[in-house]
């Protein structure tokens, strides 16, 4: 089984930062989206397929389908970047028996109840607690919008969040 090279939480799923920064930096050849909403929306799929670089594949799964594929012997293709919309999606994958070694937090937008933890990252209390539980289980967690950003580890995200 091949695990994804990186798992990223990004409300925007496939967009400029992913295509122009992460894909070349990690030499990604396969983009996976695990998201129930995207999986059921043909327009989203078509829009995201429009801009794929040559030789980069895109697969869109529901969370349950993605978990099943990642648990199977087949796993993900080499050099896969797995995109999740929300922190809770990462929690759901781990709960479904898919270990996540490295979790990148990219863009999580503001909404009521969330406080800023990094330039493009807003989290509510339950999301932070869920991330800390994942970290205790062995997941390495950082914020970085693009590869060139200086990574902010989870402990520092907690400190910034609690300061506000």
């Amino acid at each position: 089984m091949t695990a994804p090279l990186l798992v990223r939480v990004d409300n925007r799923l496939v967009h400029g930062q992913v295509l122009e920064a992460w894909v070349p930096a990690l030499k990604i050849s396969s983009l996976w989206i695990a998201d129930d909403e995207a999986a059921s929306d043909a327009l989203t799929r078509m829009a995201m397929e429009l801009a794929l670089p040559p030789r980069v594949g895109l697969s869109i799964f529901s969370l349950a389908q993605a978990a099943e594929r990642l648990r199977s012997a087949e796993g993900a293709p080499e050099k896969t970047l797995l995109l999740l919309r929300e922190v809770q999606s990462a929690v759901a994958l781990v709960a479904a028996g898919v270990p996540i070694a490295r979790l990148n937090l990219g863009n999580v937008h503001f909404r009521a109840g969330r406080k800023q933890a990094a330039p493009t990252l807003y989290l509510d209390a339950s999301e932070l607690e869920a991330l800390e539980a994942l970290a205790r289980g062995g997941t390495e967690i950082e914020w970085r919008a693009v590869p060139a950003d200086t990574a902010i580890p989870l402990a520092a995200l907690r400190a910034r969040h609690d300061q506000l």
Partner: peptide, 16 residues
């Protein structure tokens, strides 16, 4: 601005 960018993706979602 950018094909594949988030702004474009949101705009395309209004097509329907």
């Amino acid at each position: 601005d950018l094909l594949g960018g988030s702004t474009t993706n949101v705009c395309l979602s209004l097509l329907a």
